[in-house]
């Protein structure tokens, strides 16, 4: 077992964890942040995406011990109670949520896109979510949701009543 210090969703933790565990195991099994989804365990599907020190990563492809002293944001860190953030609002409004299993990773991929550029082109959005698989939507509504979220961010769209 090893000891880790990690900040997750603005809370500091000190955790004892098995050497063989990955970041996703730490987040799900230890911290019970089950919004982090495991779909393929090899970086193909992106369902386990989190933001690590400001960068979008697959939490299934990082060993837990590597993230000592790091800062992680998971889907649980984007909202407080029912007070959801602008990307989450856009996903609901655009109908970009179906089975929901890709949704947390997809929303964090959207955050990574919009944190860089509040006005991304459709091509940039497609590139930005190219590490996230969705088997339900055909991606169209997800791209629309990210465009809508960009609109909320740059002020060209306002929240629905």
């Amino acid at each position: 077992m090893i000891n880790l210090k990690i900040n997750v969703n603005n809370t500091d933790y000190e955790i004892e964890i098995d050497e063989e565990k990955r970041l996703i195991d730490l987040l799900r099994d230890e911290l019970r942040l089950t919004g982090v989804k495991e779909g393929c365990s090899e970086g193909e599907c992106g369902a386990c995406s989190v933001i690590l020190d400001g960068k979008l990563v697959n939490s299934c492809l990082i060993m837990a011990f590597q993230v000592n002293d790091s800062k992680v944001v998971t889907i649980e860190g984007l909202s407080e109670g029912d007070n959801i953030n602008y990307i989450q609002k856009a996903f609901i409004e655009a109908g970009a949520v179906q089975c929901g299993y890709c949704t947390p990773g997809m929303i964090l991929a959207a955050k990574a896109i919009l944190d860089k550029n509040p006005n991304p082109s459709r091509e940039e959005i497609r590139m930005g979510i190219s590490g996230n698989l969705c088997r339900c939507t055909g991606y169209e509504k997800i791209v629309e949701a990210i465009e809508l979220a960009g609109g909320y961010l740059n002020g060209t769209k306002t929240y629905r009543e």
């Binding site: 919004g35 998971t74 889907i75 649980e76 989450q88 609901i92 929901g100 949704t103």
Partner: peptide
């Protein structure tokens, strides 16, 4: 119409 479970799904609270 918004999906009834979409709030749970965008917040990561939906349980599988």
């Amino acid at each position: 119409i918004d999906r009834i479970d979409s709030l749970a799904k965008v917040t990561g609270k939906a349980m599988y």
